[in-house]
Design a binder for these strands. Structure first.
Ligand SMILES: [Zn+2]
Ligand SMILES: [Zn+2]
Ligand SMILES: [Zn+2]
Ligand SMILES: [Zn+2]
Lengths: 133, 133
DNA sequence: ATTTAAATTGTTATAATATAACATTATGTA
DNA sequence: TACATAATGTTATATTATAACAATTTAAAT
């Protein structure tokens, strides 16, 4: 029996914008994306935000909330944008997605005072990257 | 020997804005704050953002990054805005600061692939609060 | 093939969030 | 006082994001 993966075939705009983000070595901001795809015919913010929303929803990219920026997911396990963790360098702004089985297990099992568990979370660590230390 | 706490005496604007946020049962957004303090003579965004920046810096309030909103800290241990965790209800938008010794210990000791530790982080859990479940 | 419905894209305008730059006033200190 | 510093006030503008509606493309039903 084959593994069942809903293959989200990207639409034209989604593909253009995903490719751009995926190639970028750093998180990209929406208006920088817009500027970079205008030559491809994507001319207005709603076109960008629509694609971003969908790409986030299906887990192809993540939003770095503290930076209002977007990076491609390179962690095959988080196809859905539910449980994310990043390290962010406060000097060069390099962002790396953390994929740690231990961390995700700990957080998925974490119970608050009311015994509530959360399957969805976003964690951003801040510090200095190797280069900047 | 007395415990040494730099007592950040708030300035007038900081106090006005802190009091407002502190009384609010829910996170407040900057322009909502602005609207609410105009009767007290704070008339322009920079006045609000300056106070917010300072209050965040000294740990009296925290920014909920995914919501662009601010709540007062009720966790005496995080006087400095370095290591924060919240639970956010996706229906009613209720936000609660989590203060769990276990969680903060785990995260403070977490090492990434390069062995890097991070003393600063922000964690946002998403789910449904008691009422909304 | 033609019609219909749904999804995607295009477009304009505007809302919401945040900061730059500079002027003024208050506060503390030599 | 005179000076420096911190805090506040003010205007303008930058940045991030969405509302609303029109046009086009795609897929399904007849
Ligand atoms: Zn990922
Ligand atoms: Zn760095
Ligand atoms: Zn706190
Ligand atoms: Zn709720």
């Amino acid at each position: 029996m084959k593994t069942m993966h809903k293959e989200h075939t990207l639409t034209k705009n989604q593909q253009i914008i995903f490719d751009l983000i995926d190639k970028s070595p750093e998180p990209m901001k929406a208006y920088s994306i817009l500027f970079n795809v205008q030559k491809k015919g994507i001319k207005a913010p709603p076109q960008v935000y629509r694609a971003l929303d969908k790409l986030v929803e299906i887990g192809k990219i993540h939003k770095i909330e503290s930076r209002n920026a977007f990076i491609a997911c390179h962690n095959s396990s988080c196809r859905v944008a539910k449980a994310t963790a990043f390290s962010i360098c406060e000097i060069c702004e390099k962002v790396t997605e953390i994929s740690s089985a231990g961390l995700s297990k700990y957080l998925a099992n974490f119970k608050d005072k009311d015994g509530m568990k959360y399957s969805k979370y976003n964690l951003e660590f801040f510090g200095l990257c190797k280069k900047c230390r």
